[in-house]
Nucleic acid binder design. Structure first.
Lengths: 334, 334
DNA sequence: CTGAAAGCGCTTACAG
DNA sequence: CTGAAAGCGCTTACAG
């Protein structure tokens, strides 16, 4: 493979001139620039990533930390992964997957070895040891989610608290006073996964304020129990007029389940939820919902990390994207 | 950050001795080994990835090439990604995502720069320019799928032809003579994505041999058209006794669709399919199916790539995993 | 606008 | 069993 020395020789200049032509870090005369470009093409030169990383202490790689727990729903995650990868590429970065079960250890591994310039964390928990791990690393990190007590880390997420408030208020405005709230398995709350507890707590508080009776149902961790859980909830609360669903797994089954019970939406039951447009269209979900916004969240997270890598001194930001309600007509006034 | 020189100094040995202690490439006396280990711990030494890559021309990174087309179904892909990452880690490799729209270009980018030691390709097409791209690279690649005319590349895949034969034969043995075969959108066939055409062609041939009337339906590219397509097929072939489904998107909707038509499985209609156990349990699919085997395929692909990286001269292998039918009772004799 | 040279942090023949 | 030194392919002060 051609090295920068080969290019320099071919172009009749020094290696440093080639390097500067490549980086644009100092002015190069038109004539030499052209000869260098010719040489690069003739020799099919591509800079060696390892050498560059060694010389600059920058790998141009972002680590993406994913901790897949069995409770979580893989399809939703893929969207984040893809958008992270594309956005990173557009900013000149590659993306390395960090999927070890112990995410904190994985972070230490890729940062200590200088493999990555920074780290993105998905599915952040309330007290997340991965945040701690980042704080101990030389490289910066950005949370896609929200961790308490880590205000020193950049983060971006959908404002799940606002989402909870907005949906409960939406149902309240339509006159609903008894609502079944289906959320994630209790395991996710035990781990304090941000999107779960922030939504739940806000929904519960708002319901209490407005005088809405909100019956919480924690989703089952397997399909069968998930399905049964919803059925039981419907049996137990026959007078409930609306379903508030924050659980992708339940959503996939819901149209079928309601059809089998001969429940028409929104005639017999209003349904509102949280999911991404892409997810909804994948499973033909006909429900009014807060847009889960994987794309803006992932895009923004990558931008924040790139900005942080470029400037370690810039002020820390913690962005919460405002929830947007997409009305698909699955709720009605009663 | 501590370097190998710091460790050497701390331990009172030379850098080469530390390096050899690390790699185990030559015997080190117990005493020095212990002093070195002490130093490593005391200084929290981790080898610099870039320096190592430069010195050895090995990055210990595998590239994973994913080309997500809108026609494809993301949830199924995530399983491959995760298993690839975990298996790679267990063999000492990290995984870099290569998601550019032009996969061939992405491959050239990460191989020419020596960023990766090899490349794994998902969703291989019959004539895949990514295979060509790999053949032109210094690093080896393994296809998770099957590309014609690239017998010089290692590959591994489920034997989709055998799967097609097995399912048609299964229905034939149960006495079915009129079957609706729902497969992927025609776009996938235009691109000649391996799992689509190999399954279809085998199913069609076997049906012809056995005298089974096989009515092909190409799935719609969006949920609505997908759903309608199935409905139309059922309308058009009221005397069909079985459904052969090779399309994850359709499968997700199927229980609902059949319930709405008051069709009981297998009483009114036998249904057989292809999907992974994990996918099936995610969507509570009650259908007898060939196990799609993302785990063995992905695991094997990573192993093959690691073996190929270690020995460029080993014989090329093209492995087809034997399909396994998991009987969930959704087909019956008629 | 350009070059010579040191340095990034490893590995590995070579020598003992 | 161990060390001195060259080399991997870049970048970047320093000098002109």
């Amino acid at each position: 493979m051609a090295t920068i020395a080969d290019v320099a020789q071919h172009a009749g200049v020094s290696r440093s001139t080639v390097s500067h032509a490549l980086s644009g870090k100092r002015p190069i005369s038109l004539a030499t620039r052209e000869r260098i470009n010719e040489a690069i093409i003739a020799l099919k030169f591509t800079p060696n990533a390892g050498a560059k990383a060694l010389a600059t202490s920058k790998s141009s790689i972002m680590g993406l930390v994913i901790s897949i727990t069995p409770e979580e729903f893989a399809p939703a995650t893929m969207q984040y992964v893809l958008v992270v990868s594309e956005t990173a590429r557009s900013l000149g970065y590659d993306v390395l997957m960090v999927t070890e079960v112990d995410g904190a250890e994985g972070i230490t591994r890729v940062t200590d070895s200088n493999l990555v310039d920074g780290v993105l964390v998905l599915d952040v928990k309330r007290h997340d040891d991965r945040a701690v791990s980042i704080l101990g690393a030389r490289q910066p990190g950005v949370l896609m989610g929200y961790a308490e007590g880590n205000e020193s880390l950049d983060s971006v997420d959908l404002d799940f608290a606002a989402a909870g408030r907005l949906l409960v208020r939406h149902l309240f405005d339509y006159g609903h006073r008894e609502v079944i709230f289906i959320t994630f398995p209790e395991e996710l709350f035990a781990q304090s996964v941000g999107f779960a507890w922030r939504f739940r707590d806000a929904a519960v508080d708002t319901a209490a304020e407005l005088g809405v009776s909100l019956n919480i149902v924690y989703g089952g961790t397997n399909p069968v129990r998930r399905y049964q859980g919803v059925e039981e909830a419907l049996d137990r609360h026959p007078t409930a007029t609306a379903l508030l669903v924050h659980n992708e797994g339940v959503l996939v089954d819901l149209p079928m389940l309601l059809a089998q019970r001969r429940l028409s939406v929104p005639r017999d039951l209003s349904v509102v939820s949280v999911f991404s447009e892409q997810f909804g269209s994948m499973f033909s979900l006909p429900y009014t919902a807060i847009e889960a916004s994987p794309k803006p969240v992932a895009t923004r997270a990558v931008q924040l990390l790139a900005a942080r890598i470029a400037d370690r001194e810039r002020p820390v930001v913690s962005e919460l994207l405002e929830p947007v309600l997409i009305d698909r007509g699955s709720s009605r006034a009663i």
